[in-house]
């Protein structure tokens, strides 16, 4: 199995430490989400993986070998700050970027054709990049990333600027590549996308890795402390519970409410009490798993 392993990676710019002692492992056939607020050190970390920057300390290894010139040919990187040569035709652009990744002319021609077709851009191949809409340019950039069949794919905000249909198409392709056994890094601010796509996550803030590992395990490790109640009738003791601090009513809904339950509150006892109210119809009782967004906010806040 292929893997990308970061061990104790640190990078400073003058007095600023952009990344401090970052370690994680990304394995093939899985998508690893890199999360973090702006300026957290995500891009610096990615650049060290892409061999654009060299770590001051620590190592970045792909398949057990330190990254370098050799690994750049095995890697496709779609940066957040990205663009195309405005006046160059799409096909020429892709062939050039492919050649820089070591693709031969013939091989590259076939692949460019395949990908343009796959992303519905065939008739745009002979046009200059500046004639394309922003969304189309995004797709061309995506093609450039995957053109040379990279073993490691790094996607930084790949869906920004794409409409839902094209986002879906890209997600489909990313899923295929995961199936195919590639190592995929996915950096984003969009929590719901990370939650939906990723198998593992790394949460980085202030240049440090705050949280990392299997997404489901991480979510499990966070307590379910939110309760959704849907019912018909009246639950008279809720106000008293709120006053005593056992629960906090977060939201009133037409047919119920969302509660934040404290340590003192036993959800099971609460359920019994609700069920014992005469004439009350209970439709829904659910202990909610914290969302990635909540985990993110909580972790970053705790750190601060």
């Amino acid at each position: 199995m292929n893997s990308l392993i970061l061990q104790g990676v640190t990078k400073c710019f003058g007095k600023v430490t952009a990344a401090r002692d970052i370690s994680f492992t990304a394995t093939s056939g899985r998508i690893l989400g890199l999360l973090g607020p702006n300026g957290a050190g995500k891009t610096t970390t990615i650049r060290m993986i892409a061999n654009i920057l060299t770590p001051d300390e620590g190592t970045v290894a792909l398949d057990g070998r330190n990254v370098g010139q050799w690994s750049q040919e095995k890697m496709g990187y779609l940066p957040e700050e990205r663009g195309l040569y405005k006046k160059l035709k799409v096909t020429a652009q892709l062939r050039y970027l492919g050649a820089l990744k070591g693709l031969g002319a013939q091989e590259s021609a076939g692949k460019v054709e395949y990908w343009l077709d796959r992303l519905g851009l065939t008739k745009w191949g002979t046009r200059k990049a500046q004639d394309l809409s922003k969304g189309m340019q995004q797709k061309v950039q995506f093609i450039a990333t995957v053109l040379a069949d990279p073993q490691l794919i790094i996607l930084d905000e790949p869906f920004s600027g794409l409409d839902p249909v094209n986002s879906e198409l890209l997600q489909e392709i990313i899923a295929e590549m995961k199936q195919d056994g590639r190592i995929i890094l996915f950096a984003s601010h969009r929590m719901e996308q990370v939650e939906q796509l990723c198998d593992d996550i790394c949460l980085i803030a202030n240049g440090r890795l705050l949280l990392g590992g299997d997404l489901r395990e991480i979510k499990k490790s966070f307590k379910r402390d939110k309760l959704v109640l849907e019912y018909e009738g009246d639950v008279p003791f809720l106000s008293a519970m709120q006053e005593s601090g056992e629960v906090q009513i977060l939201e009133w809904r037409e047919d119920g409410c969302v509660l934040q339950i404290s340590e003192d509150c036993n959800p099971r006892a609460l359920l019994d009490r609700v069920l014992s109210i005469p004439g009350l119809e209970l439709y829904h009782f659910e202990m909610l798993q914290p969302s990635l967004n909540e985990i993110f906010i909580q972790t970053v806040r705790d750190e601060a």
Partner: peptide, 17 residues
């Protein structure tokens, strides 16, 4: 200059020195 203003540069330096 163009490569920096159009932001092609980051893709390039991830492929070539």
């Amino acid at each position: 200059m163009e490569e920096r203003t159009t932001r092609v540069v980051e893709v390039l330096v991830s492929s070539v020195r």
